[in-house]
Amino acid sequence: MTELITPVAPAPPGGPAEPVPAAERRDRGLVRRLLRPGLVVAIAVVSVALLWAFVPGWFTGHDPITGVPAQNLRPPGADHWFGTDHLGRDLFARVVHGSALSLQAALIAVLIGLLAGSTIGLLSGFAGGAVDDVLMRVVDVLLAIPGLLLSLAVVTVLGFGTVNVAVAVGVASVATFARVMRGEVLRVRQATYIEAAFASGVRWTGVLRRHVLPNSAGPVVVLAALEFGQAILAVSALSFLGFGAAPPAPEWGSLISEGRNHLATSWWLTTLPGLVVIAVVLATSRISRALGGDGSTTW
């Protein structure tokens, strides 16, 4: 029995007397969950990274492309927070300016994965039968190939460039999105309200749009936040391998790659951009957990 229900006043005439959970209670819980320190830090990290991408001038006065050769390979200090590289360029400026390319690429990758993946999953789960079988076998093949290898193959076909790298990473994540979406659709498809909608005379496109999609989108959105972090990593990895942005343009992966040449003497060239990538990836993962409604995380 439901003892957790508040007693309420007697029934209004004609209306049933049963308690109604207050909407304000849910809001208060949400506020409290948003104030968890880990989540606050995560949101701050991602916000800063986004601000870097849109208004880099707010954060650094140094030029990311042309350096001062006399000041090359300086360690981190008050003038150059992240130090300078072998051409005397300010590394912090390069990281700040590089976030635009990196985040843009990650965003494109996630959007491709999200749109293509959830469309496949939606159709597959809703139609069932032969459609489901064919689509899911294609997805199985995609899943069988390691993600980075698949991205490498795609980017080799498409050619170099940030957008191509993004497309390649996106294609590799289609399968995961499709799987998650299909699972959710299969669950929602069982619900009585879906049958009730059909019984009300709603066409299948309407049922899909009004009932199935909104009720199954939740976990996919969570996955998108998680995949955003993964995409940053994958884009950086491909740039590191030299498929990404052409040299003078800063990009997180290529920054780390360039730093390798001076690893023995100048640790900051690889370490600091690497830490930035890690921080952003961890932050997106924490946000994704919050989106997933994980109330058990206490930090």
């Binding site: 619900a191 009585t192 909608a197 009300s200 009004r210 009932h211 909104p214």
Partner: peptide, 16 residues
């Protein structure tokens, strides 16, 4: 010809 289901918790889309 319309239907009313047993479980009013399941037969209404919770998001609408």
């Amino acid at each position: 010809l319309q239907l009313v289901y047993q479980n009013p918790y399941g037969s209404l889309d919770p998001r609408l």
